[in-house]
Simulated scan of single mutants.
Amino acid sequence: MNAEQFNARYPIGTPVIAYPGCRPEDDPNGERLVTRTRSRAEVLGGHTDVVWVDGHSACINLTHIDPFSATDNSPEARAARWVPSNPRPLCHYFRQKSDPAAYWCANCGWNEDMHADEARRLAIAEALKCLPASATR
């Protein structure tokens, strides 16, 4: 996908997994960031399609960016979409906030449904490990 195609599909702020050095199929130990785009994609030096993401100072080649679809409801996709906004671990015991935010946990800020699903708990824990250090509170 080139920069023009990327910009047509994904606005600034799109949740992505970014691989700054190399993709996991090339190096399983490579860096992996669960983050968001912070710029429009552009062509760097007239030859490389890149985008900037939160938590990383350099641009990243679009071949090393995996956007998350808004319709993907897998635990992994949901965690990756929400973790940049709430970089706190999911607690084990849901404690309801007072209205109007009663659906959200007063302890950790995650919603009630996430507390009841071990797959979601593991997905959030994995996504937190990949969050840029600058995003943690």
Rank of each mutant, 00 (worst) to 15 (best):
H56Q: 05
T35H: 09
D54A: 12
I12Y: 01
K129Y: 06
A18R: 04
G45F: 10
L131D: 10
R36V: 12
N2Q: 14
P28Y: 05
D49N: 13
F68G: 00
A102S: 15
G21T: 12
G30A: 15
T37W: 01
N107P: 00
P84Y: 05
P11A: 03
A106E: 12
A135Q: 10
P89T: 03
G45M: 06
I65A: 05
C130D: 14
T71N: 08
T63H: 03
Y103A: 11
G45S: 07
H47M: 04
C105A: 00
N111R: 03
Y103W: 07
I12T: 15
I65C: 03
F94T: 03
L44Q: 10
A123V: 12
T37Y: 03
R137L: 11
S69F: 05
I65E: 07
A102H: 12
P28W: 02
R81T: 06
R40P: 00
Y103R: 12
G109F: 13
C108A: 01
P87A: 02
L131V: 13
A125D: 14
C91P: 12
P132L: 02
R36F: 05
R78L: 13
D113H: 11
A119E: 15
S39R: 00
D27I: 05
P67F: 08
A8Y: 01
P75E: 04
L128M: 05
S85Y: 13
P20R: 05
P132I: 10
A119Q: 14
C59T: 15
E118L: 08
L90K: 08
W82Q: 11
R95M: 03
I65V: 11
Y19P: 08
R78C: 06
P100V: 08
A106D: 14
S69T: 04
P67R: 05
